[in-house]
């Protein structure tokens, strides 16, 4: 079919183009610009080429050591919460009532934490986990488990992980619930006739049918947890010491605390590239998985 060619049509995408330009391309290019320069204030910049990048990616330098340490903490945090939230979310979804008022109520309860703003969540848990006036921290101490997240690394990580579970497991549960609901009854009936065990039903029917929603869920949870900032900033401020200083927190410290715009710029770009690379891998896995399904 012949399509008419009219170059005036370019004007139709101009608004979208301008929006993307001002909220993504220009800010990103500004960061790229910072990352190749050094400044001592007064808006005076000196060309530094790839210097910051070399320093950042060299673990023996001060900046590189710091970067890899926070990168490790971020990766560890994402790994822990994915390992907990995904299985837990699936379990919650399987235990949810299938219909009626009980379903409506559990949907509301599960969705509630998702609606609370990040800094409010942080403040809630900051108070809740305090050992002097917080119900959670006070109770633990009262039953004889020493718990103080302001000076104990394990306690600080526990608070952040439990807080993230509370905040986001519901997302995985809701996604999985929708996935489970879409499985026709006939599958379960056929499995019964085939004599399948409960485990076989899960592994052979439910998990394959959930694989698409789970991939999306894992991707969302990975990005969110890998870029988490507000909650640890509010609860621990990155401490004790640097124990919960994730990449995002370290980045803000360098950029706004020390005002090292060049180092922070280089770190931002590498950080962004890591997130992009992981998302690309996920996307590829998802798309090839679907294509395989189509071709058999």
């Amino acid at each position: 079919m012949d399509k008419p060619i009219n170059n005036a049509a370019w004007f139709l995408i101009l608004p979208a183009f301008l929006i993307v330009l001002f909220n993504a391309v220009i800010p990103l290019m500004t960061v790229v610009n910072y990352s190749v320069q050094d400044t001592f204030g007064n808006n005076q910049f000196f060309w530094n080429g790839l210097g910051w990048y070399q320093e950042l990616l060299d673990p023996s330098s001060e900046l590189g050591g710091r970067f890899f340490a926070s990168l490790g903490r971020s990766a560890m945090f994402s790994a822990i919460i994915l390992a907990i939230e995904v299985p837990l979310g699936i379990m919650v979804a399987m235990c949810m009532p299938r219909r009626g008022i009980a379903l409506a109520l559990s949907l509301v309860f599960i969705a509630m934490p998702l609606l609370i703003p990040w800094n409010v969540v942080g403040t809630m848990w900051q108070l809740y986990a305090r050992s002097d006036i917080g119900l959670f921290g006070w109770t633990l101490n009262a039953i004889g488990i020493p718990f103080n997240y302001t000076n104990d690394t394990l306690a600080a990580w526990t608070v952040l992980v439990v807080m993230d579970m509370w905040h986001w497991t519901g997302l995985i549960a809701l996604l999985c619930f929708a996935g489970l609901k879409s499985i026709p009854d006939a599958y379960y009936q056929a499995a019964r006739i085939d004599g399948a065990s409960r485990w076989a039903v899960f592994a052979r029917i439910e998990l394959p049918k959930l694989s698409h929603v789970l991939l999306i869920g894992v991707l969302l949870r990975f990005m969110d947890s890998f870029m988490i900032y507000t909650e640890p900033f509010v609860v621990t401020g990155g401490g004790p010491g640097n124990a919960t200083t994730f990449l995002s927190i370290d980045l803000v410290k360098i950029a706004l605390g020390q005002f090292d715009l060049g180092k922070a710029g280089a770190m931002s770009i590498v950080y962004t590239l890591i997130v992009l690379a992981v998302c690309w891998v996920f996307y590829t896995v998802m798309v090839t998985g679907q294509n395989k399904g189509g071709r058999g």
């Binding site: 006739i193 085939d194 394959p208």
Partner: peptide, 26 residues
């Protein structure tokens, strides 16, 4: 007894052979 449903029920991740073997394995 065995039952065949309105919409085909197959185990997606398995091959045809594994599908057919499934009731016997169980």
């Amino acid at each position: 007894i065995a039952q065949v449903f309105q919409f085909p029920v197959i185990y997606d991740t398995m091959s045809v052979r594994q599908n057919l073997a499934f009731p016997l394995q169980n």
